[in-house]
Design a protein around this nucleic acid. Structure first.
Lengths: 339, 339
DNA sequence: CTGTTAGCGCTTTCAG
DNA sequence: CTGAAAGCGCTAACAG
């Protein structure tokens, strides 16, 4: 039991050559059905398990995808991972999951590890500390397909699967404006991340369309953790100037904000309206009337996996890269209008 | 860039032997500091990335853990995975995540794949369809350490990291009894899973302690999805006989039950009390006064990973297996008592 | 249809 | 301290 049988053991037992065994196990058409059966039976009998390591080394293919996310337990990412795993599994691929914990240094070391493991493709949602893509060069240089998802990359030559953040930001803001809100604060994230840049741009565009002057002080930049949302909301409530509404660029911060509001015994959306870019089911449970811009982690995961698998199977990475933009839909759970 | 440099390329460029290069890259003490530096520099220069595949094949060690869970996006499991990844990462291990989707067949095929990939250890939370452990024999026969977590295994010779389900079930039920509830329904899961068996046993024990007769009709067995909880609660509400309280063996079903109750305009816990075995933050958000038996996915994941890593590093799997039992604490968020 | 042979890239004896 | 050589288990030419 200890020393696992190899194809040589099977070959020896059957007095044939190991390459025939290899062919039989790979269901090559160049082996008689008879010998094939004989071999399969003997393999079963010996408790043979093929050594994928050796096979991978030889074939230069691992049937493994590397996935890097900031944090596995965030609902959006775990849904995305679920989607990735599902499509990968159907295609016969495994996924190695790694989390950067929002740290660039960890991300770098992970990327190196994945390249060393010779994964066939890398799917990444970059950390908040990732300001450039230098550490990802090694992936491309190794001819390993790379696909960004959600937290994507604006540099040319890369492929992304993303949410239409601009439109999402625009829709969220316009929705708030149409509800009669004028003074709308935007909770934004690190400006280096495209998603936050674009959501902010959408926010600005909506203001402009409705002839509302953009006030830079109405943009609060944090890391958008729940705590950040809570604190930002506290700040707002202490302002002399009245704020009508908040568009939060993510769900965690929205949750924090909602909790803060509820604690102050104010009403949503009567006293202050909120729209969150959301995938966290909590946010709508905590405030059933919450309007959200919904993004499906599962869908984005499946799409990203399908994309990278196509690159791998075709042995070709598009030089110019390509973007797949998924829609994020505004879901209105309360239609009460202001004045 | 296409053909990756190997240690031989480095060796050739430096006019030394590849074994010296190998030693240098592995920081062996049997190489001069000078040559070491020379080699490291050249490696950097050539953009050398070690081929872990080849190394693994030779050393018979992959530094990879296989993890099998029913579904990645369930909050408890994604937390557990996060914990596993964190401890694994610190020890220099990667994790391959697979989901059985509660299907035995998939679980079987996954297990085979992981053995073929020569993972150094397997962590598993079995599917609801898993009635015996035959398909896991191959793991043990391959001398690969195996640790069950949460949904564990009662067969001798296995190692488990688990929640004290009996005590959890007992505490939940006793809590409900002490609140004045007499007629308590228990939502249970497939009886083949130890966790549900034990939670049910705890429920029975608490009834017995307080001299309440056990009524088999008060145990509703489903797969404990949200939908199941909803439907079970509907059934209960339609009963002639009045039910005071429900102890749900998992969080999803509790959420369904709560939604059903709210829809009926009844109050929790005044009209009907609920305690859920829970890790899903939603359940307490949806019903802030909900009492739960809290289990930490993160902690269980970390513990399980640490355990299996110790087996791997010591190259020894305890023959008798061992159980690490973590406590699940009853968290009471509302102390209102019934008459 | 089957066998022979070489080698994927690395580590690890064994010599020196 | 360094080199030579063998081999982990498999696959893929190339012969036959």
């Amino acid at each position: 039991m200890n020393n696992k049988p190899t194809i040589h053991d099977i070959a020896k037992a059957l007095n044939i050559n190991s390459s025939t065994v290899s062919r039989a196990l790979n269901d090559s058409p160049r082996v008689t059905l008879k010998t094939k059966e004989k071999i399969l039976k003997k393999a079963e009998e010996l408790g043979y398990k093929r050594n994928v390591l050796a096979s991978s080394l030889r074939k230069n293919v691992t049937n493994t995808l590397g996935v890097i996310v900031p944090r596995i337990s965030r609902h959006f990412f775990s849904s995305a991972i679920q989607g990735i795993e599902e499509t990968a599994y159907l295609a016969g691929y495994n996924v190695i999951i790694c989390q950067s914990l929002e740290q660039l240094e960890r991300e770098q070391s992970i990327v190196n590890g994945l390249v060393e493991k010779r994964v066939d493709g890398v799917l990444i949602s970059i950390s908040m500390e990732t300001l450039n893509y230098q550490h990802l060069e090694i992936v491309k240089n190794s001819n390993i397909p790379l696909v960004f998802f959600d937290r994507h990359c604006n540099e040319a030559g890369n492929s992304n699967v993303l949410i239409d953040d601009f439109k999402g930001g625009f829709d969220a803001t316009e929705h708030l404006i149409l509800q009669g809100n004028k003074n709308i604060v935007h909770f934004s994230g690190p400006n280096e991340l495209e998603i936050y840049k674009n959501r902010l741009a959408g926010y600005k565009a909506a203001l402009k369309k409705h002839n509302i002057a953009f006030n830079p002080e109405n943009v609060i930049v944090t890391r958008l953790m729940e705590d950040d949302g809570f604190k930002s909301m506290q700040t707002i409530l202490n302002l002399k100037q009245k704020i009508d509404a908040v568009f939060s660029a993510n769900d965690m911060a929205a949750i924090g904000a909602i909790k803060c509001i509820k604690q102050s015994n104010l009403k949503i959306p009567d006293d202050i309206a909120i729209v969150g870019f959301s995938n966290e089911p909590i946010s709508t449970v905590i405030e059933p009337s919450l309007t959200t811009i919904d993004q499906s982690g599962l869908e984005i995961g499946k799409t990203a996996a399908a994309l990278i698998l196509s690159y791998i199977e075709n042995k070709q990475i598009p030089e110019k890269g390509e973007n797949i933009v998924l829609k994020a839909n505004l879901i209105e759970r309360n239609s009460s209008k202001r004045n």
